[in-house]
Amino acid sequence: MEVRTIKVFTTVDNINLHTQVVDMSMTYGQQFGPTYLDGADVTKIKPHNSHEGKTFYVLPNDDTLRVEAFEYYHTTDPSFLGRYMSALNHTKKWKYPQVNGLTSIKWADNNCYLATALLTLQQIELKFNPPALQDAYYRARAGEAANFCALILAYCNKTVGELGDVRETMSYLFQHANLDSCKRVLNVVCKTCGQQQTTLKGVEAVMYMGTLSYEQFKKGVQIPCTCGKQATKYLVQQESPFVMMSAPPAQYELKHGTFTCASEYTGNYQCGHYKHITSKETLYCIDGALLTKSSEYKGPITDVFYKENSYTTTIK
């Protein structure tokens, strides 16, 4: 009895394709271990004539594949690729409408935090270190965002349907971005203890939790000093293409032309909904596939993004 075979390709990165001759009487799992086709788990399936010449994702289970996976995804987590594939199996079914010149995501599976993050990423200057993220990001900007969303979920250790947080998501993504040249110098002034300067680099240099107003941050924000008295913390120097200011959701007025974009969060910790506000020729609110415009805006804002380049204080 002759062994019926077909020729397929296996890959971990969709760049390096490895030619395989597979036995049609055995499952993919018996031949390769966990195997995925377009995100779908085909591990328990036997090869079919229609699979001839198709590319299958496999887990990096030998040295060659491990090197290829690390170079593309910059992670050695053995569960990463499987999590990416199972997320992709959902995100490829989502709709990605162009809204006001940006790629958004039609609401499904509690994905409003991903839509808000995706919209924000198209408006701030950011370059990702893992080629996987950078490639998928370019495709997302062009309207094909399924891979990018699935990668975000995998890097953030999230599953489809789980509630997510924009600030946490951005923080994970910033860790995989090139923020080497970003720098922030802060000064804390206390009447009792004097003053202390701190220099922050990388992710810490672009994120701040405690106030939404970048102007206020430049002037000074009140913080408790270690001595128990009130101290003032203010920005001395900022070198970065953008800054992200966050605070627990509270009524906040966004003035046209003073910011790049913002995240609105309605609801409580267990259950809520994100919308995205962007400042173009007027203010726009993007909620999944829905767009509304207004000249002014007041609502429960939790993150505001500002364009920056270089700032030095005039406070002496």
Rank of each mutant, 00 (worst) to 15 (best):
E2F: 09
V3K: 13
V3A: 12
R4Y: 11
T5V: 14
K7R: 13
V8H: 02
T10M: 11
T10A: 09
T11P: 02
T11V: 05
V12L: 09
D13N: 00
L17K: 09
L17C: 15
H18T: 09
H18M: 07
H18F: 00
H18A: 05
H18Y: 14
T19Y: 12
Q20W: 08
V21L: 14
V21D: 13
V21I: 15
V22I: 09
M24H: 12
M24S: 07
M24D: 11
M26F: 11
T27C: 15
T27H: 13
T27R: 09
Y28T: 04
G29R: 15
Q30G: 13
Q30K: 14
Q30E: 11
Q31E: 08
F32G: 06
G33V: 06
Y36M: 06
L37I: 11
D38R: 09
D38F: 09
D38Q: 11
G39V: 07
D41S: 11
V42I: 11
T43H: 14
T43M: 10
T43Y: 07
T43A: 12
I45S: 13
K46T: 15
K46E: 13
H48N: 14
N49K: 12
S50Q: 12
S50E: 14
S50M: 12
H51M: 08
G53C: 09
Y57P: 03
Y57D: 04
P60S: 08
P60F: 10
D62F: 03
D62I: 09
D63L: 10
D63N: 10
D63Y: 09
L65S: 10
V67G: 13
A69D: 06
A69T: 10
A69M: 13
A69V: 05
F70A: 06
Y72C: 08
Y72M: 10
H74W: 03
D77R: 03
P78V: 02
S79E: 15
S79G: 14
F80W: 04
G82I: 11
G82T: 15
Y84A: 12
Y84G: 05
M85V: 08
S86G: 10
A87T: 02
A87L: 07
N89W: 14
N89T: 09
N89L: 13
H90D: 08
T91L: 03
K92L: 11
K92P: 02
K93M: 00
K93T: 10
K95M: 08
Y96S: 06
Q98N: 12
Q98G: 07
V99T: 09
V99W: 13
V99A: 01
V99Y: 13
N100T: 10
N100Y: 08
N100G: 15
G101A: 06
L102K: 01
T103P: 02
I105K: 10
K106L: 14
K106I: 08
W107I: 04
W107S: 07
N110W: 04
N111G: 01
N111C: 09
C112D: 02
L114K: 05
A115R: 01
A117Q: 10
A117W: 00
L118R: 04
L119H: 13
L121W: 04
Q122F: 06
Q122M: 04
Q123S: 05
Q123L: 05
Q123R: 02
I124G: 08
E125M: 13
L126Y: 06
K127S: 12
F128G: 05
N129I: 09
P130E: 05
A132H: 06
L133F: 00
Q134R: 12
D135P: 04
A136Y: 08
A136W: 04
R141N: 10
A142D: 13
A142L: 12
A145F: 03
A145Q: 05
A146G: 08
N147I: 11
N147H: 14
C149Y: 02
C149E: 03
I152E: 00
L153N: 07
L153I: 11
L153H: 05
A154V: 02
Y155G: 01
K158A: 12
K158E: 05
K158Y: 01
T159L: 11
G161Q: 00
G161M: 11
E162R: 05
G164M: 01
G164R: 03
V166G: 00
R167I: 05
E168C: 15
E168N: 15
T169I: 13
M170L: 11
S171A: 13
L173R: 02
H176L: 12
L179K: 00
D180E: 12
C182T: 05
K183T: 09
K183V: 08
V185W: 00
N187D: 06
V188A: 06
V188T: 15
V189F: 06
V189K: 12
C190E: 09
T192D: 13
T192S: 13
Q195A: 13
Q196T: 14
L200Y: 14
L200K: 08
L200S: 09
L200D: 08
K201Y: 15
G202Y: 03
V203E: 00
V203D: 11
E204C: 01
V206Q: 04
V206D: 07
V206H: 03
M207S: 04
Y208G: 09
Y208I: 08
M209G: 13
G210D: 03
L212T: 12
L212P: 02
L212E: 03
Y214K: 05
E215Y: 00
E215H: 06
E215I: 08
E215S: 07
F217L: 15
K218D: 00
K219H: 03
K219F: 03
V221I: 14
I223M: 08
I223Q: 08
I223L: 09
P224Y: 09
P224K: 14
P224Q: 12
P224D: 11
C225H: 07
C225E: 00
C225L: 04
Y234I: 09
V236R: 01
Q237C: 11
Q237S: 13
E239F: 10
E239H: 11
S240I: 01
S240P: 03
F242C: 06
F242L: 01
V243F: 04
M244A: 02
M244T: 00
M245E: 02
M245A: 02
S246M: 04
A247D: 01
A247S: 10
A247H: 04
P248D: 15
A250N: 08
Q251Y: 08
Y252W: 07
E253D: 08
E253W: 14
L254N: 04
L254H: 03
H256F: 08
T258W: 00
F259H: 03
C261R: 02
C261T: 01
A262E: 04
S263T: 10
S263Y: 03
E264R: 02
E264Q: 02
Y265A: 06
Y269A: 15
G272E: 04
H273Q: 00
Y274G: 03
Y274Q: 02
K275P: 10
I277V: 07
T278V: 10
T278Y: 13
T278N: 08
S279F: 05
S279K: 03
K280R: 14
K280M: 11
E281L: 01
E281R: 01
L283M: 10
Y284V: 10
Y284A: 09
C285S: 07
I286N: 00
D287A: 02
G288M: 13
L290M: 13
K293F: 07
S294M: 15
S294F: 15
S295V: 05
K298L: 11
K298C: 15
G299A: 08
P300C: 14
P300A: 07
I301A: 00
T302I: 10
T302N: 02
T302P: 00
V304S: 01
Y306M: 03
K307W: 08
N309M: 09
N309S: 14
Y311W: 14
T312Q: 14
T313R: 14
T314H: 15
T314S: 15
I315R: 15
K316A: 15
